[in-house]
Write a protein that binds this DNA or RNA. Structure first.
Length: 583
RNA sequence: GUCCCCGUAGCAUAAUAGGAGAAUGCAGUCGCCUCCUAAGCGACAGAUUGGAGGUUCAAGUCCUCUCGGGGACGCCA
């Protein structure tokens, strides 16, 4: 670890050891009393308890060692035994110059591992709705964060492309276009390259078919038969299904593109279908399957369960497999084809019981060895202003593309009309994405939060727009400096409290990233970005950077600005937000 | 009914394995553009952290009770 705070933590740890105390974890945190110090160590009180000594005596012993270190400009003990630390300008400047050359010094590093992240889960032929937003935003950001920290990450969109909805859509198409070759069972020739339906058609068809199935048993039965034939890959249905998926996926991709979300894998339930028999047989061979109320189930109870966990239904009483089974087959597939160290599911918290059951079966049966971590990182439900699950004014579900369009039209009201059309378009797209992501990632992952379209459209204050505007302004400053051939090779010193504040903020980057990663939530990064940017903006508003006449000072200002810019760019990139050059 | 989560300023949210004076934005009041993009900067005001007990040097955070909201509890995914 080369970064400033982590290095000091190591140092402090060895000092504590030298003083004769044993502690496994030394954490320095930013001070809650800036008047007393810049950072604080709070561990003395617990040491005192463990060793039954006066905390003040222990703190004083530790401080005596720290006083000899030139890293600090001030060390003191306060209250029941808080150790307060402040850093010398020299130490900070020196560190900034290291970071300036390689921003990666200012972050931690994970052990090498391979992680599959399952986030997305859109259904083929169904419009994505606002509920897909969090999964996409959080999943993508966690993926980028893990990558930034050195993990190998594979994102899988995991389409819902294989259930009865597919049968329903095909049935409805059959009723509307009985003349299509796909439905002619005697037909042996090639099928056309294109089908004359659009994604919009598909999105309209599904709700209609679904309603019909609820009202008409014959219709439902027919859909069931088609689903069955599709799953047996009967030629015509299978070919049509492929076309439907093609049309739908193109649309899903373009929507995810707008959100800067991309997947390494575009697998779906249909891909693990071929392993379902293997999984069922494997579990049967292990003796884990029993019959219950006409279904095949796997018991997953444990003795220490507080609640009775119901058995996992492997095969339903009507003979079809449940989606638990599909998920197990997918894990089976992933273990076989990728052998990951961890599999993460970024899915709404309400599905936690489902994942608990699935994971238990995987571990219990040995499909997944115990050293591989299966993790459901549930996220909070998006509620409407009334605290109940979000609905549009007319009680319907708001589609994701609708939400994006709404935000975009808000953004366009404020855009600079002097730029050419193409650039305006790029700016409004980037801003829309930034606004949407930042608002969504700002609350803690597990918080149920109020989904408020007005909030998502708000361009003032703590928003993606603020971050992009400010970051763009730094970039433009640096570009101007470059045009003038101003040197910006090093931070030469600290000339105002503003710079000190910026540097102290920059020291927090590694812990912010690690905390975000460990808790799998992006709110720390979001918050931090605002703080760093705000700290820089105070500096920007109070100190003339480009027009500073002293070249030594100017060089320092510019160098520091460069570090802030690179840091912002890195963090925004983790959130999935692109930086703009102009706006 | 059982279990889980939540309750923080008018609103929306923070608070790092319990740490010092509960933070941020919006909304409100008031300042700041002859000068690097004001989509910005600054100041003020706003809170018995739902309530009552308890543990602790220290509680928004842990425990008990209570009130209010949400969710999950075998064949929808």
């Amino acid at each position: 670890m080369n970064n400033f705070i982590y290095k000091l933590e190591e140092k402090l740890k060895s000092i504590i050891k030298e003083c004769g105390y044993d502690t496994d974890n030394v954490t320095l945190v930013t001070s809650s009393r800036p008047d007393l110090g810049e950072y604080q160590y709070n561990g003395v009180m617990s040491l005192a308890k463990a060793y039954k000594k006066n905390p003040n005596i222990i703190a004083t012993e530790i401080v005596e060692h720290l006083l000899q270190d030139s890293t600090f400009s001030n060390v003191n003990v306060a209250g029941p035994g808080f150790i307060n630390l402040s850093f010398s300008d020299e130490a900070l400047t020196e560190y900034m110059n290291e970071v300036k050359d390689d921003i990666n010094i200012n972050k931690g590093q994970l052990k090498k591992k391979k992680i599959i992240i399952d986030y997305g889960g859109p259904n083929v032929a169904k419009a994505l709705h606002v509920g897909h937003l969090r999964s996409a935003n959080i999943g993508e950001a966690l993926k980028r964060l893990a990558k930034e920290l050195g993990a190998e990450v594979i994102g899988d969109v995991h389409l819902g492309d294989w259930g009865r909805p597919m049968g329903l859509i095909i049935l409805e198409l059959k009723n509307r276009h009985p003349e299509w070759k796909y439905f002619d069972e005697d037909y042996n020739g090639e099928y056309p390259d294109d089908i004359p339906i659009t994604n919009k058609d598909l999105e309209e068809i599904y709700p209609i078919a679904s309603t019909k199935a609820k009202e008409d048993d014959n219709y439902l039965e027919e859909a069931r038969i088609i689903t069955y034939k599709l799953q047996k890959k009967e030629r015509g249905y299978y070919a049509l299904w492929k076309k439907i998926v093609e049309v739908s996926v193109a649309n899903i991709k373009s929507l995810y593109d707008k959100l800067n979300v991309s997947f390494e894998l575009w697998n779906g339930e249909s891909d693990s279908d071929k392993y379902i028999d293997d999984v069922v047989n494997y579990l049967k061979d292990k003796g884990l399957v029993c019959e219950s109320e006409g279904a095949s189930v796997v018991d997953v109870k444990k003795d220490d369960d507080k609640v009775e966990i119901p058995p996992l239904i492997l095969v339903k009483s009507n003979g079809s497999v449940s989606y638990e089974t599909t998920d197990i087959a997918t894990i089976w597939e992933r273990m076989k084809e990728y052998n990951p160290d961890e599999i993460w599911y970024v899915v709404d918290s309400r599905q936690s019981l489902h994942f608990e059951q699935v994971f238990r079966v995987c571990y219990k049966s040995g499909i997944v060895p115990v050293n591989v971590k299966l993790d459901h990182m549930g996220f909070g439900t998006m509620n409407g202003k009334d605290g109940k699950p979000f609905k549009t004014r007319d009680g319907g579900v708001m589609t994701l593309s609708n939400l994006i369009d709404n935000v975009k039209s808000e953004v366009e009201k404020k855009i600079n009309n002097n730029l050419d059309k193409e650039e305006q378009e790029k700016i409004s797209n980037t801003l829309t994405c930034a606004v949407l992501k930042y608002a969504d990632l700002l609350p803690n992952r597990s918080t149920d939060y109020i989904f408020d379209i007005e909030k998502f459209s708000d361009m003032n204050g703590k928003t993606g727009v603020y971050l992009l505007y400010s970051t763009m302004r730094i970039k433009s400053l640096l570009d101007r400096a470059k045009e003038n051939n101003y040197s910006m090779n090093k931070v030469t010193g600290i000339y105002s409290p503003y710079e000190k504040d910026i540097i102290l903020k920059l020291l927090e980057v590694p812990s912010v990233l690690d905390k975000s990663f460990n808790e799998r939530t992006l709110n720390y990064i979001c918050d931090y970005l605002y703080e760093l940017t705000n700290t820089f903006n105070s500096f920007y508003a109070s100190v003339k950077i480009l027009t500073e006449e002293d070249p030594i000072k100017r060089e320092s200002y510019l160098s520091l600005s460069g570090i802030v810019f690179k840091t912002n760019r890195m963090l925004l990139n983790i959130l999935g937000i692109d930086v703009l050059e102009r706006m």
